[in-house]
């Protein structure tokens, strides 16, 4: 297909999608109206389970099974990227990575200052996922990417010294398994997979909303490990893998 034909096909398809979008928007309830039946049900259910952050309540309580699926998508993508990025037959991995030029003093200073702050922030976002905006996914990304401030500030060798890959492979597996384990605990105690098995606690306090904080920690661990593994594979590909 030439570029010209491709763009003509695209124009026709885009026009059709555009017409469907306009028809849909015209037929939808008006923007910003007060009719949100799912909202009413979800807010009531989250408050009944003492969850202050209703979004977390939806993700880790009402739709926890879907979140398990989402988590396994992430696991699958990490495994897939690891398979795709392994060194090929005509490639080899360098054991010693040449030290690159030291970064600017200002980058080093800011990187080393912000590294602990960012990691604490990530832990805070995971730990308070059921009370304030955030949760396992968001905090996990902060943790996983925040660790790479070390790469910006100290270079690849500094990162490698602190970030050995095997523990994060274990973390990825344990995070996913912990989610399933909480689900099986629900199955054993109440007869329903991922049903709440913990005391609900008092609204707005740290121990509250049952299994939500537990699942937040499991997901936070899995996401942080997953991000670190993904970036490790890409960094290896850029710095370590070379043609024989």
């Amino acid at each position: 297909m030439t570029r010209r034909v491709r763009l003509i096909v695209f124009a026709a398809a885009a026009a059709a999608v555009g017409v469907l979008l306009v028809v849909t928007v015209v037929g939808m309830p008006p923007f910003g109206n007060a009719f949100h039946p799912y909202r009413d049900v979800a807010v009531a259910a989250a408050i009944a389970h003492q969850t202050a952050n209703v979004v977390s309540g939806v993700n880790y309580d009402l739709r926890a099974f879907d979140t398990l699926g989402e988590e396994t998508i992430l696991l699958g993508s990490v495994v897939g990227a690891a398979v795709l990025l392994r060194p090929g037959r005509e490639e080899r991995e360098r054991t010693e990575v040449p030290e690159d030029e030291p970064p600017l003093q200002a980058v080093r200073l800011v990187g080393y200052l912000l590294l602990p702050v960012t990691l604490v922030l990530g832990l805070d976002v995971v730990a308070h996922g059921h009370l304030t905006p955030g949760g396992g996914f968001q905090g996990g990304v902060v943790l996983g990417t925040g660790l790479h401030l070390l790469y910006l500030a100290g270079g690849f060798r500094a990162l490698e010294r602190l970030r050995a890959v095997p523990p994060f492979e274990v973390g990825e597996a344990v995070g996913t398994a912990a989610f399933v384990a909480v689900g099986i605990a629900g199955l054993a105690v109440t007869g329903s997979f991922l049903a709440n098995v913990l005391p609900l606690g008092t609204f707005g306090s740290m121990p509250s909303s049952g299994i939500v904080p537990l699942l937040n920690v499991a997901v936070g661990m899995e996401v942080a490990s997953g991000v670190i593994l993904l970036l490790a594979h890409f960094l290896d590909q850029a710095l370590r893998v070379e043609r024989r």
């Binding site: 408050i47 003492q50 202050a52 952050n53 209703v54 979004v55 304030t132 905006p133 707005g204 306090s205």
Partner: peptide, 8 residues
């Protein structure tokens, strides 16, 4: 949809 405070 995030409630502050300690009372539902």
């Amino acid at each position: 949809p995030v409630f502050g405070g300690s009372t539902p």
